[in-house]
Design a protein around this nucleic acid. Structure first.
Ligand SMILES: [Mn+2]
Ligand SMILES: [Mn+2]
Ligand SMILES: [Zn+2]
Ligand SMILES: [Zn+2]
Lengths: 134, 134
DNA sequence: CTTTCTTTTTAGAATGATTATAAACTATAT
DNA sequence: ATATAGTTTATAATCATTCTAAAAAGAAAG
């Protein structure tokens, strides 16, 4: 699916600002974990391009979150990370470097939760593994 | 350990404001998961008592976090929860009621992580189980 | 094309949680 | 008592995020 289709599927027209945001987010080999602040900086560091406003970046990121092309993570109470890897997966958080690393579902033994809550059903199980230098 | 000792162990003198904060936090049967905003409200809802300022509440909560009498959680990117249960444990987050429920370590089968990161050592593994109405 | 209507972008204002500041207050020590 | 140190508080500052409303761009109609 190309960028324009992703945008349309999120209810947004493919404008040049939004396409530049898509390129930064999705034109990558690996998962991209990012903070909105850093994304805005990256988008606006090349002085030859026209600046994209923070409002546009937030609007686009939230539309992608809503449509499922981005996930919002709970890693650090003081930083709001987004993730381009929308498959069900887990994370390592390197406390030394503040780096996030994907941990795929199949790299973790099935998690058996012995406690159940009456009237409730599990919608997701996510693991956060904090690591530091050995 | 009584409240005054907890405060002293956190580098704080047992003043009447701090002791009232302790009572609200620690004088309970069950784990207390809270937001600072709600804690401030609770402390100040009885009109007969003198109001405690937000600065004092934040200072005290952070001192307890630093000394290990409170844990800060990563549950919801938009809300900053603290937890009086400082043992190693996991959480259910009820997306219907926004309620947090403890999931003890012994209620989860040992988590086997097959992926390792060179030069890194695991410092913690935490599970977040999201649930909703059946 | 022009005009008209709709959507988008943007700068800057507003918001809300948290942190910082500095003056007033309280407790302790001499 | 006086001096000193620690504490509380109101309020200001900060920072991420959201809101607003005006300008710009794009699509549709004539
Ligand atoms: Mn959070
Ligand atoms: Mn967060
Ligand atoms: Zn990821
Ligand atoms: Zn807990």
């Amino acid at each position: 699916m190309d960028f324009a289709d992703k945008l349309r599927a999120s209810g947004l027209r493919p404008t040049k600002q939004r396409l530049r945001i898509c390129k930064t987010l999705f034109d990558r080999d690996k998962t991209f974990h990012f903070l909105v602040k850093d994304l805005v900086e990256t988008l606006n560091e090349k002085t030859e391009d026209q600046k994209i406003s923070v409002a546009t970046v937030y609007n686009t990121v939230h539309a992608f979150k809503k449509s499922g092309y981005l996930k919002q993570l709970n890693i650090d109470p003081n930083h709001n990370y987004f993730d381009t890897n929308i498959s069900h997966h887990h994370h390592f958080f390197d406390e030394s470097t503040k780096e996030l690393i994907d941990l795929n579902n199949d790299q973790v033994e099935k998690i058996e939760i012995k406690k159940t809550l009456p009237g409730k059903t599990i919608s997701s199980v996510e693991i956060l593994v904090k690591v530091e230098n050995k």
